[in-house]
């Protein structure tokens, strides 16, 4: 059983309280404010991706959020049963000039997760797909 375990419906309404809980947990684990906020941003990006792309905004989907401190490493896992998300290699920094010209509003989420967390993997276990994000405490 994870230190922090939450189960929410696939609705943006539930994202801010989950993000607040994760930030609070990160602070309790010893992360400084700035790093805890970065963890919060990464968790929001994962949740937003699951709601928009995996569940395609269908509210009946279920999302599990689990967080644990293992040694000096905070592990956050966001699991869902929607469409799996394919991640092809390390993401490059978004080409913002191109995004602006093409009027694209997306493309930053996964990049921010990779930027703000030390490790980021996508995986699956039984019927669940998951985002696994890790960040180390720094002295």
């Amino acid at each position: 059983m994870a230190d922090l375990s939450l189960r929410i419906g696939s609705e943006t309404l539930f994202v801010p309280p989950v993000v607040a809980a994760l930030k609070s947990y990160a602070l309790r684990c010893g992360f400084v404010e700035e790093e805890a906020t970065k963890i919060a941003v990464a968790v929001e990006e994962a949740l937003a991706n699951v709601i928009k792309h995996s569940y395609e905004s269908r509210k009946e989907g279920v999302i599990l959020i689990e967080a644990d401190l293992k040694g000096d490493e905070l592990c956050v896992r966001v699991s869902h049963q929607g469409k799996p998300f394919v991640l092809e290699g390390k993401r490059a920094a978004p080409d913002i000039e191109k995004l602006e010209k093409e009027r694209k509003k997306g493309g930053f989420g996964l990049y921010l997760i990779e930027k703000f967390m030390d490790e980021f993997h996508l995986g699956h276990e039984k019927e669940w797909h998951y985002y696994l994000m890790k960040k180390h405490l720094r002295p």
Binding site: A40, V41, E45, I96, L99, E100, R103, K105, G106, G109
Partner: peptide, 16 residues
């Protein structure tokens, strides 16, 4: 005090 990627997307759309 906080912004995520969806906020960035709104700003880009509004800029255009």
């Amino acid at each position: 005090n906080y912004i995520s990627s969806i906020g960035l997307g709104v700003i880009i759309g509004y800029l255009e």
